[in-house]
Nucleic acid binder design. Structure first.
Lengths: 319, 319
DNA sequence: TTGTACGCGTTATCAG
DNA sequence: CTGATAACGCGTACAA
């Protein structure tokens, strides 16, 4: 492995000059530059990027923490992040965490250890305080509405949109409304539950705990939802499903079982994935790719702002 | 930022001893070890991992090249890779390339520059020769059947399975068979076209170029396929669709238009995604998560082998 | 069991 | 414009 020193020797200049050529610094004579360039040619020289990182204290690496990558929500978020990363010549270190907190902490560690310059946390398991502690080591951007304003974030207001969806269903005559989430833990789910409880409160509606169904992430979970529905004494007449994938799965199941939508069961999906358009599912449009892009940009520039992304209900034919 | 030297000073030992403690080396007395540990406690010391990397010449980082992450094929592959990475304490650097060759080359560069120890290339755009050149810098594993045996790979035989699917359809009476692919370029697609042509040859069937439909990656592309079908003078009676997502999209479209499957149109999907099970789509079962895991393991251990993953046809109700 | 001293490859400072 | 030289922070022969 030839290094900068070898190049210097070969081209009859100092290492500084070689470094300058390597980094396109000005103030280096044409001849010397040519000599160095030639030496680089001959030796199939490769800069050891770790040395650069050590010297500079930066890595051009951004960490991305997410639980899984194979659900549309996170896949699209990641797509948006990756797109911007590509544009800005940043590399992404993927922390596909699988909801394991210790791995999340590892990501924080890597920030501390300067292996990554910044970190996007798409879904958080650890305490905010812990994250707070780490912002001194690099930019951290969250994808949730943080109460602590000091943490940068790009988010959608899950409380608001969930409440709005509930109101919409209520206005259509539904009083028994169930909903599904990916995981019950997590700040988004808490917000949704809060909205749900406030909604029930507002209209003096009863709370049935089994109306909240968790672990609904994939298409096939639609089957699970319908099974659970069947096991209920009082079945809901409407469902808010936090993924169009799952909503589509429910549609298919209902079709099989001869349950007509929206007459017998109303469904609101989430994300406005292409599948929702094709199957005419009423859904919440969330610009996930854009959201991902904004996450990247905020982490990239180190802005310390809290940006809300607006979403809207798309009325189609399942309510 | 306190460093190893500060620690040494504080705990009254040498840097080597500190380093030994840090790396759990044997032969360090309990007292000194305790002293160092205490110093570490007090100073909220963090090892600068770049320095470690520079010194060691390794990074515990593995690159993963793939065009997109939001199709089931690549998402599941990535899932498998990420799972094994998690187990083996390896971090992944994601090269979501979007089919841009220059970015693929960048990944190769990073291998050269020692920023990553190894590289998994899930989908290749550049020349094999170029990859060949880079194996001296680290392990590279491909996800295709390479003719050059010197390149490590884990793969499925797309030729074989495609031929098998065609035979299956032929045996069911189909003679006009079309198929879809994600991209026409790419080695998998070439293999499929080869199989397709050989099949036609074998049974003396005519070749219609518009029977090969590309750019079919997402659910919503099912719509596109059906549109193209309608524009054909002689429509195929059967379709092989290289993604269950798309196959499902086709199912939905056909339902809308009153085309009955398999009577009027037979469909074979790919991947055996959950959606295929729910919609009873005959498909090719490809253990993508396992395949991803194997890719990781091979890259991790640096095995130079060519492992074939076997796949099988799952008969359901769309043929 | 411990410490010294050097190497890893590059960048940055500063004097010239 | 150029070149010494000192960091950067850690690992590791080698010597003791």
């Amino acid at each position: 492995m030839t290094n900068i020193k070898d190049l210097a020797k070969m081209s009859g200049v100092s290492v500084s000059t070689v470094s300058r050529v390597l980094n396109n610094h000005p103030y280096v004579s044409a001849e010397k530059k040519a000599a160095v360039l030639k030496a680089i040619e001959c030796t199939n020289y490769n800069r050891n990027i770790n040395a650069v990182h050590l010297s500079r204290g930066k890595t051009q690496l951004m960490g991305v923490v997410l639980p899984v990558t194979d659900t549309p929500y996170f896949a699209l978020l990641l797509k948006g992040i990756a797109k911007r990363a590509l544009e800005n010549d940043y590399k992404l270190v993927l922390f596909q965490i699988d909801y394991a907190e210790e791995k999340e902490i590892e990501a924080l560690q890597m920030l501390k250890q300067k292996q990554i310059d910044s970190l996007i946390i798409c879904s958080r398991k650890c305490e905010l305080a812990l994250i707070q502690e780490h912002i001194q080591y690099g930019t951290i951007v969250l994808c949730e509405k943080t109460t602590e304003k000091s943490l940068p974030s790009v988010f959608i207001d899950h409380y608001e949109i969930f409440f709005q969806a509930l109101e919409y269903l209520y206005q259509k005559g539904h009083k028994k409304i169930g909903y599904s989430v990916g995981r019950k833990t997590g700040s988004n789910s808490s917000l949704r539950e809060q909205a749900y409880r406030d909604f029930l409160e507002k209209y003096k509606l009863p709370f049935y705990s089994d109306y909240i169904m968790d672990d609904c992430l994939y298409f096939e979970d639609g089957e699970k939802v319908m099974q659970r529905l069947r096991s209920m004494d009082i079945q809901p007449t409407a469902l808010i499903i936090t993924s169009d994938q799952v909503a589509a799965g429910i549609m298919i199941e209902c079709q099989k079982e001869g349950i007509s939508i929206p007459e017998q069961l109303a469904v609101i999906g989430f994300n406005n994935e292409p599948i929702a358009k094709m199957m005419n599912i009423t859904t919440i449009d969330i610009p996930l790719v854009e959201l991902g892009g904004d996450l990247f940009l905020q982490a990239y520039h180190g802005y310390n702002s809290n940006k809300q992304i607006s979403v809207k209900l798309i009325e189609r034919e399942t309510v």
